[in-house]
Structure formats: C-alpha cells, structure tokens
Simulated scan of single mutants.
Amino acid sequence: MTFNLTVSPDFAPDHISGWYFFNTWLQRQLETGIHLELYDSFDAQRTDIRAEKFDLIYANPYDASMLVRELGFQAVARPASKSDETVIAVNVESDYQSVEDLKAGARIATTDDPDVHTMGMIMLESADLDKTNTEIKEQSSYIVVAKNLLNGGADAGFFLKEAYDEMSDLIRSKMRVLVSSQISVVHHSLLVGPRMAEYIPAIQQALLTMQDNDKGKSVLESMDVSNWEPMDSEQTEFMIDLIDTLID
C-alpha cells in the first residue's frame, strides 16, 4: 500500500527539493511507499484533505483543528525552535511608521495562508481596521505580496515571518516591518492520519533521531530544520484551542 503525504503550501520555494528528499528518506525508514503531492493553493489542498486523500500532512496551525478534531489525525512532531509568527510590512519609503498610522481604506496585500491572514487582521484591530473598512488584495505568494508593496499596489502586506526573513536582502531592504506577532506556541506540525496510525511510533522515533546521522542531518538542512521535537495530544489541543479563540 502506498500512503500519501502533503505539505502546507507556505514553505519557501527553495525547500521544495528538501521535501522530496524527506519523502525518500521517510520511505526508507518505514520501508513503505509514500507519495508526495505539493500544492500552490491552500483551498485546493484543503479540498483534497477533506476528501481523505492524505495520510501524512505537514500542516499549518489553522488546519490542525480540522485534521485532529474532524478527520482523526494525530500530531507527532514539530520542527524545533520554529514558531509561526506574522509580520505586517510596508514599503520602506512609506509614511506609515506603525500599524496605528494605517487608515480606513488601506489596501492590504495578503495570501490565502489562513493562519497568517487571520493573525494579520487581528493585529490591524489596533488601528480600528477590519475586513469592512480595508481593501483586501489576495495574492498567490509572499513574493507577490512584496511586489505589491514595492510597486505601490498595496499600503501594507501580511507575511509569514519565516518567509519574510528568507527573502533576498535586496527585497527586504525595500520594505519595513511595522509589527511582528510574538505568540511562540503556534507552529506547523507533522500529523498522521488514521490509515497510517500503526506507523506513529516508528515515524516519531525516526524523526526524533533524524539529526543523529549524516543522511538525516543532510535532509534536515535541505528543509531548513535543525531537528524535530515530539508533540503530544495536550500540546496539540492547546494550540488548536488558541487558534480557535483567535479566529472567534
């Protein structure tokens, strides 16, 4: 039997090869077939997830609630020292020096990354802004969000902090961060579905010792991950409750 793996679409394009290396490595560790399928769109991926197409998912925190509480997935590990933080940035030549400087009618460039967009909108509340008095411009990627800021097509943009930090020095030099979230307990995680439940102990053991040999360490480096940390049900439920509270 071949299982199916997918990855939340918000990883940096430079790490695409890393996920293919990871998939090959994991198949060898588990001695079973795993097919990796990547998406450009969160909505398209979520449709296939709901259709129960996948058995192993590197998921963003927003989707964790659906996966755990509706589809019976179990979180087994998370990348160490990697939390999902959101950045609101503007063109470096902009007059805006803080979020509170933004006014009604502000054009906000964002992506369909659900947790980043949600956190960005929450951070706009300090300026009395919400979806009713801003112009939301959904873009296909964080690079396109940055282009919108640089060419004057948007007043501010939402970024996953990791994605913002991985942009070239040239692009970042033309933008300025107004605010960055500091939640620290919200993060991506690797979740295993019901059809693959029997492999959970082997998967967790393989991940937690991945950095201990040259091959595993090389794969981790290609993914920009130092090592994995275990996740239990209590940690998972805490993160899901926090996300649900923020959304509500």
Rank of each mutant, 00 (worst) to 15 (best):
Q45F: 00
D113I: 02
I203T: 03
R50G: 11
Q204M: 01
I57Y: 06
I203D: 01
I16W: 03
Q182I: 04
L178K: 02
L102Q: 04
A64G: 07
V177A: 02
V7D: 00
A12G: 07
A64M: 12
I203F: 02
M231N: 09
K82H: 14
Y62K: 08
F158R: 04
D169P: 06
L246Y: 13
A80D: 13
A77Y: 07
I108F: 07
Y58W: 15
S233K: 14
R78K: 13
E221N: 10
V179Q: 05
V192F: 01
Q211D: 13
F3Y: 15
G152A: 09
L178F: 00
A75S: 14
A104P: 06
S41K: 13
A202P: 02
S233E: 15
D165Q: 02
E100S: 09
M119H: 06
A146Y: 02
G72L: 09
P194C: 08
Q182D: 15
E70L: 08
S181D: 03
T111H: 05
A163I: 06
T111N: 06
D128M: 11
I57L: 10
F159Y: 04
A109H: 03
G72R: 15
N151Q: 12
I247P: 06
F3T: 10
E138D: 09
M1Y: 13
L102I: 00
S233T: 15
D128T: 11
T209P: 05
S65M: 02
S173A: 11
L30P: 06
S65V: 09
G193P: 01
V90Q: 04
L208W: 01
V185P: 02
T245L: 13
L129A: 05
D212K: 13
H187C: 05
T24A: 10
K147T: 09
L67K: 04
P194Y: 08
A202I: 08
D40F: 14
D115P: 03
Q235W: 09
G33N: 12
F159R: 00
P13G: 00
Y96V: 08
